[in-house]
């Protein structure tokens, strides 16, 4: 990596692990739709020790939840390193910068810059959106705060600039497909230090993407973490394949999921007892975890992949099984 011999950018645990060359694992924690800190603490306890840092989502899918920074502080109190997610949907450049100062002052060190889901998806579809800046401009702004010691206005920090490890997302399979590696290049050029991709299930397609990424030398300029997640059921797999832009699910995986529930084949949900339904769901989930473990193992072999980002929202317990199953447990500790 370019800054091998330099000082740490942020000094976060995630940065130290990535810099030391370990295959990193990040997770995801979705804050609750209420003000109960115990929900966050409970999820944090389940994730602790199984990943190096955890994304704290920011009103994901445009549904109002406890703030990323608030929940991030709770997670940190439980010994988990947060990656604060910041979207451009709900805040203008004043609010973003101000929240970043607050987040840094409270000990947050990793930041993932996102444009944000459109509010049409969420529970406040009549709201006004902001989109004053976009995710790339946000990446640059946060990197400039750290490296140039400047606000977006150009005003200089007289002291104590926030020094975040700057992350960005990538959607390798969204359209226009040919442009995707170049958009990643733009994000890295803007200053992204690490990248987390959208869920990857189709390794062949991902290999093609990564080949281009390597040709552009992007894997040497930023740490790329491949997004993975356990499937819960064949229905979920089909839904994602057909309805979620930028997610490819190969038929082979859908078949594996279907096969896992073969014992109950042909049975309609309404004719099944509670126990049967539970058993089938358990069988599906077990296969989903197996598939995910296979993916994580395969990702370790891809040149230019520095880690995995495991997305198992509302199924946090899966992370431990996946990390252990892929031989990535225990997680390393790199002293500051």
């Amino acid at each position: 990596m370019e800054n091998e011999k330099k000082e740490y950018l942020s000094g976060s645990s995630l940065e130290r692990i990535l810099r030391a060359g370990y295959f990193a694992v990040t997770g995801e924690l979705g804050p609750p739709q209420n003000a109960n800190p115990e929900v966050v603490r409970k999820k944090a306890k389940v994730l602790k020790g199984n990943c190096d840092a955890v994304n704290i989502t920011d009103n994901q899918t445009a549904i109002v939840r406890m703030s990323s920074i608030g929940a991030g502080i709770l997670a940190e109190q439980e010994g988990l390193e947060p990656i604060i997610q910041m979207t451009c949907r709900d805040r203008n450049r004043l609010a973003i910068q101000s929240d970043l100062l607050g987040a840094y002052a409270l000990g947050m060190r990793n930041l993932l810059c996102l444009t944000g889901d459109h509010q049409a998806f969420g529970n406040h579809p009549t709201s006004k959106n902001v989109f004053d800046i976009d995710s790339l401009q946000l990446v640059k702004a946060v990197a400039d705060m750290r490296d140039e010691k400047k606000f977006m206005s150009g005003d200089e920090f007289k002291s104590s600039e926030p020094r975040f490890l700057v992350g960005a997302a990538a959607a390798p399979f969204a359209d226009p497909l040919d442009f995707r590696p170049y958009r990643l290049a733009k994000k890295i050029e803007a200053g992204a230090n690490f990248i987390q991709t959208q869920l990857v299930y189709d390794l062949d397609a991902f290999e093609i993407y990564m080949k281009k990424v390597r040709e552009l030398g992007l894997h040497e300029k930023a740490y790329i973490l491949a997004g993975v997640g356990p499937l819960k059921s064949p229905m979920m797999a089909k839904y994602m394949k057909n309805n979620v832009p930028g997610i490819l699910v190969p038929d082979e995986l859908i078949e594996r999921m279907t096969e896992a529930g073969a014992e109950w084949k042909g049975k309609k949900k309404k004719d099944m007892t509670k126990e049967e339904k539970r058993a089938r769901s358990k069988a599906w989930k077990a296969e989903g975890i197996k598939i995910c473990i296979d993916l994580v193992k395969d990702m370790q072999k891809i040149e230019g992949i520095a880690g995995v980002h495991i997305m198992a929202i509302e199924w946090e317990s899966a992370v431990k099984e996946i990390v252990e199953g892929a031989g990535l447990y225990p997680r390393p500790v790199v002293e500051a």
């Binding site: 451009c88 949907r89 444009t115 944000g116 889901d117 459109h118 049409a120 998806f121 959106n129 989109f131 976009d134 995710s135 790339l136 401009q137 997302a169 959607a171 969204a174 359209d175 226009p176 442009f179 958009r183 733009k186 959208q198 832009p245 930028g246």
Partner: peptide, 29 residues
């Protein structure tokens, strides 16, 4: 663009349309 992006397209572009509605063309495509 539904998000007025200057550095698009976002990850919600699929088959030429915007993720908010299949009737909305993705401007960035």
């Amino acid at each position: 663009c539904s998000k007025s992006l200057m550095n698009g397209p976002c990850g919600g572009s699929e088959d030429g349309h915007c993720e908010i509605d299949k009737d909305v063309e993705c401007a960035w495509q």
